[in-house]
Amino acid sequence: MQQPRWVDAAGVRHAVSPDRARRLIRRELADGFDPATDPPRLAATIGEGDGSGQLLVMPSATRTGAGVKVLSVAPGNPERGLDRIQAVYVLLDPDTLAPSVLVDGTAITSLRTPAVSAVAMDALAPDEVGSVVVVGSGPQALGHAEALLAIRQPTSVTVVGRRADAARATAQRISGLASSHRMATRGLTVDDPAFETAVRDAQVVVTATSAATPVIDDDWVADGACVVAIGSHEPHRRELGSGLLGRSLVVVEDLQTAHREAGDVILAAAQGPLAWDDVHTLAEVVLGSVTRATDRPNVFKSVGMAWQDLVIAEHVRS
């Protein structure tokens, strides 16, 4: 049997740019793929207590291919200088289902998560975006800024983190991405009073944290603004409060998946401000049956799904 080819992180980035990843994800939904056909994510807890990690298995099949991502989530990795998420993607031959390509799964995740968010932001954010706030200073914070810069030209980006040095470093890296226009960046800590003001003034807010409780207050987000929450996939964790979701247009990747994993939505529905009947899907947005609200915030809650990895991995192979 022929040995699978290996594609490293550099190969992933060379094959698929952030904006091409967005277009691929959008095209899959526009062509009629139903995310509800994705198998549920399999998860196992590793270790005990607050430092416990997870082992996840994410299989998927589309009309053109099949594959599986095996990944771990280790909360202590950033302190070791490692990514929180470690992963490998196994792309299968569509005919024999034999492993044909092994791909750096961390790179796939870092690319596809912002791409999915960018599909939502392109539809749910104003055409003119001046101010952006990114809560979190890790790889996904940088990736989401890069994805947003491909579809909008903000004049300022504020990065907010628990550590001032990490927030400033990420803000500086984001500044280097804006080669086509002038853009101011800054890094703040979560206890800085300027944090609230920045969110209130923002047209786009991204929360990319490991928090278990809301990182912004319910009344900070302006009507018409777009909030993207990507930090968790567990039913008891959230980055956004019930009050914010209750007054927003809420969009998820898939309703069944959201019922299992989208803690922000699950908790808001359980506490009363949000009704599941008022939650919409990203496919509805892409197909035009749901449009952005101007009289209330627009919230996209993403948990990440296996089909998204497969879409990117197939084009890494090609």
Rank of each mutant, 00 (worst) to 15 (best):
V90W: 06
T106K: 00
A43K: 13
L91F: 02
I85A: 09
Q54S: 13
P99G: 12
T64D: 15
A115P: 08
P99Y: 02
A120Y: 01
S72D: 10
R152N: 14
G76S: 12
T45L: 14
P94M: 12
V129Y: 01
D83S: 09
L42F: 12
L148Y: 04
P59V: 00
M121A: 14
G67W: 00
T64V: 13
A147P: 08
G47C: 09
T37D: 08
A61H: 04
P139G: 13
V135R: 01
I108M: 05
A66L: 07
G49V: 11
V116N: 00
P94N: 12
L142H: 07
L82E: 10
S137D: 09
A145Y: 08
D50G: 13
P40E: 04
N77T: 02
R63I: 14
V132T: 06
L111Q: 03
L142T: 09
L71F: 13
L56K: 02
P75F: 04
V70Q: 05
V116Q: 01
R84G: 07
D122M: 14
G76Q: 10
Q54T: 12
I151Q: 14
A118R: 06
V70L: 13
V119T: 03
D95C: 13
P126N: 07
V135H: 02
A147Q: 09
P99R: 02
P99H: 06
V119R: 00
P126K: 01
S110G: 10
V88N: 08
P40T: 02
L82N: 08
A141G: 13
V70C: 08
R41F: 00
A118D: 03
K69N: 02
V134G: 00
D95M: 15
G81D: 08
A123E: 03
G138L: 07
A107E: 02
G53T: 04
S131M: 11
G130Q: 11
R152L: 15
T45I: 12
V57M: 05
P126G: 07
V57T: 11
L102W: 04
K69L: 01
V101T: 10
V70M: 10
T109C: 05
V134C: 06
L149P: 08
A141P: 08
A123N: 07
V73Q: 02
I151W: 12
A123Y: 02
L56H: 03
A98I: 14
L42W: 10
I46H: 13
M58D: 00
E79N: 14
G105R: 00
I108N: 01
P40R: 05
T37P: 01
R152M: 15
V57N: 05
A150S: 15
I151C: 15
R84C: 09
Q86W: 11
V133W: 05
Y89L: 01
M58E: 00
S137K: 06
L142C: 13
V90T: 08
G143R: 06
V90I: 09
H144G: 11
A44W: 12
H144Q: 12
S131R: 12
T62N: 10
V57H: 03
